[in-house]
């Protein structure tokens, strides 16, 4: 079954980073991904929305190479990085060693320090992971993902466990880093606002196939108070089957 393997992309179309066609992933009786197609351009930022159990994370794991598809064709860049919901730092290794995990020496340390500087943690190069706050640890995870200059950056609900203020700062940081390094990004999230704020394109899975695929045309910097933002949010929520019901208190 060669077609089910993950193919490392030399880029089929010269401008594409990811090309999926007919990808299937079945758990028991249920096809979580039932023959989906997806093309992501180089440097494109897409967000995959939807509640739990719709196959978002399954898709991300397939793209990361952590899981194997049951059918279809997957082409992805050779260098891929993942930022998970938890930072997943090695507690027994210093922050910089976590960033360049598997490498040692002065050169590796310089690269790690530069990456940490980029995420605003230049002062924490030699710190131990347990001394970091949740937001700082997640920034280390971002630095660790970007230091490898990935062609595809996979973000698996990376801000879900952070407090609201930290999350806002992280959104800005991710956009900054994305503009500087320009990898293709797949952000898996259940937060509609986050998706609109960050992504070029928002998709949602439903019953194993794409239920929604919409380009975000709002100009940067995006503002939640922008009427266009609110309109898109309303439309996306409606398409996801959620109607805003909470009326302001009288």
């Amino acid at each position: 079954m060669p077609s089910t393997d993950l193919h490392i992309l030399a880029a089929s179309g010269p401008r594409d980073a990811v090309e999926l066609s007919g990808v299937r992933r079945v758990f028991g009786e249920r096809a979580v991904l039932d023959g989906i197609d997806l093309t992501i351009r180089r440097g494109e930022f897409i967000a995959v929305l939807g509640p739990s159990g719709t196959g978002k994370t399954t898709l991300l794991r397939l793209l990361a190479g952590l899981d194997k598809a049951d059918g279809g064709r997957l082409l992805v860049p050779k260098t891929r990085s993942v930022v998970f919901q938890e930072p997943r730092l090695i507690p027994a290794r210093r922050v910089w060693e976590n960033v360049v995990l598997g490498r040692r020496g002065a050169q590796a340390r310089r690269e790690a320090a530069a990456a940490l500087e980029e995420v605003g943690l230049g002062a924490h190069v030699d710190a131990w992971p347990r001394t970091l706050s949740g937001g700082e640890a997640q920034r280390v995870a971002l630095a660790r993902a970007l230091v490898r200059e990935p062609g595809l950056l996979l973000l698996d609900e990376p801000f879900a466990a952070l407090d609201a203020l930290t999350r806002i700062r992280m959104h800005d940081l991710v956009l900054q880093l994305w503009r500087r390094h320009h990898p293709a990004v797949v952000l898996v999230t259940h937060d509609v606002d986050e998706a609109i704020l960050l992504a070029d394109r928002v998709l949602a899975l439903s019953n194993g196939s794409w239920g929604l695929d919409e380009r975000v045309e709002i100009k940067s910097p995006r503002d939640r108070s922008d009427p266009a933002f609110a309109a898109l949010r309303g439309r996306l929520l409606a398409e996801l089957g959620v109607r805003p019901t909470i009326a302001p208190l009288q």
Binding site: A64, G65, L66, R80, S81, V82, F84, E86, R88, I90, R93, E97, L101, G102, R144, R148
Partner: peptide, 22 residues
């Protein structure tokens, strides 16, 4: 934590590197 080993896998660490560093 298998999650740490999984993370190491996503960064292309070889088996011996994973053992040594994680």
């Amino acid at each position: 934590d298998p999650k740490l080993i999984e993370a190491a896998r996503t960064f292309d660490l070889s088996r011996s590197q994973t053992i040594l560093h994680v």
